[in-house]
Design a protein around this nucleic acid. Structure first.
Lengths: 199, 199, 199, 199
DNA sequence: CTATAAGCGAGACGGTACGTCGCGTCTTGTA
DNA sequence: TACAAGACGCGACGTACCGTCTCGCTTATAG
């Protein structure tokens, strides 16, 4: 009478896993993320529903996993390097790299996922752990290095600097009207920089 | 075979309307917004489901209407008056007024609604029309007046200034970790002000 | 606090009445009787639902009324005259007159109405009063006259003789398989006659 | 987009099936067949509506199935044996066996079902296949044997003989006024026999 | 010759039931 | 024991009609 002992990951079928994640992203891309359902994924992937529920707790988790996997391993050169002498240009480049190029077509999936997170605390938690926090950490670290070089005001918490920049982008993505393109990304960087420059 | 021409609003029963909106908010408050359902609202309000569908296209629309009605008519003194000589203090006060006091307990409803808007374009549109845009307009106008008085840098688009401030708040509300309280509101204002002050 | 005093028939609008009955029969003929609804009749007749409910208790009553009115006043020569010397021929003629020619296209409506009567006792009662019993009475009286002339065995209850003949017709109409045409009508008469002839 | 291929009957849960059929008959007996609804059956049987719709196309089909199952396997001794020397007595006994004793309490269900058949062609078809035709076949065969023994006029189609007898019973059950009891059953047999006896 | 009561069209209302969808759990048979 | 397949109990969806109601309007006697 064990409380549904977790399955043994060693026995997991990598083929099914791949088919499920592919199906999830494909359906999100084709019919819009809102049309994604476990039943639909199962049918499209040629997989039993049970197999999905064995490894993921909800459809949000599946889509999140699929998106994370797609983004995973993307390297952002600017994050590897020191910001360099021209911090404003580096920041603008970074935002374009991460927000426009890396995310790009996945933005609808991301915003759907954030929507899902408002309904389901598990998805919210996983979303932060898998996507949000790591990204925040990487950029905050990068900003910390810029502070060490004197390119950014030293009295600003790097994480709050991330909020200042990315808050604008998420705000527009999720709620506020207006275009959501490269020009706006650059503008957001410019505006945030006014408050981040050393005095 | 006309496409079910819309009902005549003059014949709408205000009593039912009130019962429905009340029930929607009450259920959102008691069981969490995610538990709200049209069936539940109908039962609680003592109303036929048809009556709800006659006047609202979705449960998101009902909740939005209810929230908008609750917030409607809330006056924000600071928005009536000129910012005054101490713009930073006025801005901090404004955020506390609008975000902490006025929204306050409704924040879970608001974030659920934004989540819903990611799934349903109709809700997204209505959300902007009813809540987001009017609030942006009010604050942007207020900032414009501050610019006229020389309290805010003249080369900043007032709407972008709103993004800079509120982006941080929404970002934390919806996605990023960390406390979401009066101290954070004040901090967000402080950080944004660094970029808004006249040089 | 009178219990909904009945409406004054003198004030009844004959135009509306006609439109309602016409609409009922037309819809029964076009979409099949099972698709008839009070709402549909009202819309098609350009009449308020209230007007229908004022004068009829149910859709069955409306259709019944419409059918009765259509059949009303149809004269059957054979019922006026004495059966005459050739009772078998007269009976066959009568059945063809009443069942094939008079009812004819209305048979689906009649069978639907009998179906409705199995669900609604009011319709059942009214159906008997308006259609079934008068028809039984007429034919039974006619048979009684044939008995007086020695054309039908005197020891048979005329009403039971009606059952014997029409039972076969209704049975086939409502339940049993097989064609339902003039030939069958004649066959039913022939078979019944075997038991009705005087010994 | 296959048209929802039918479910695999091998996977059908016999327990649910039994609960559904029991609930259908119980509700028909308690509140009258007209009050039967799929929702009611589902609730009473502790079963999802979906499970009912998976296996039956309509509530008529459920009730029909339940009734057929109840009647199924009832053996009528008189149908097993040769009619014997006293055909009139055998026929009267047979009618009492089948109509009064076997059907008995189920007559309201049967008449409701016939009513339903007038509204729904699927029910009509199934009703004939499951109940009407088999019963007609059995009795017709039995009459055929009586004809071989010279107990019934040889020039009568056995199926038409069935019509002659049962037509009266159904006619009274469904439409015509008058008692519907053992005496009437006997009378119907007597009257029909007048036309069936060998000359 | 008005006024007041009725029928009327329109259609919103509280309900009941419909037939469908997707959820998350389960059972069955195969590898 | 994982897996494909898919039936199951369940809850909610959005729709169709039911029979009652409330609104203005017109019509037709009765004061």
């Amino acid at each position: 009478m064990s409380p549904s002992r977790p399955p043994n990951p060693a026995l997991r079928n990598p083929e099914s896993t791949a088919k499920i994640l592919d199906a999830a992203l494909a359906m999100a891309a084709e019919s819009g993320p809102a049309k994604v359902s476990i039943e639909g994924i199962a049918e499209r992937a040629g997989v039993g529903k049970r197999t999905i529920y064995r490894w993921w707790p909800s459809k949000g988790a599946v889509v999140l996993d699929a998106l994370a996997q797609r983004l995973e391993g993307q390297q952002f050169e600017r994050l590897e390097a020191t910001p360099g002498t021209d911090f404003p240009a580096a920041l603008k480049g970074l935002i374009k790299d991460t927000w426009i190029h890396a995310l790009g077509d996945s933005l609808p999936v991301l915003s759907w996922l954030i929507g899902e997170a408002q309904h389901d605390p598990d998805v919210a938690l996983e979303l932060r752990n898998r996507l949000i926090d790591p990204a925040r950490d990487r950029v905050a670290t990068w900003i910390r290095r810029a502070q060490d070089e004197g390119q950014v005001a030293a009295d600003v918490d790097p994480y709050r600097a991330v909020d200042l920049v990315y808050g604008q982008l998420y705000y527009r993505l999720l709620i506020s009207p207006g275009p959501h393109n490269e020009a706006f990304a650059e503008d957001a960087a410019t505006l945030a920089l006014r408050g981040l420059q050393p005095r």
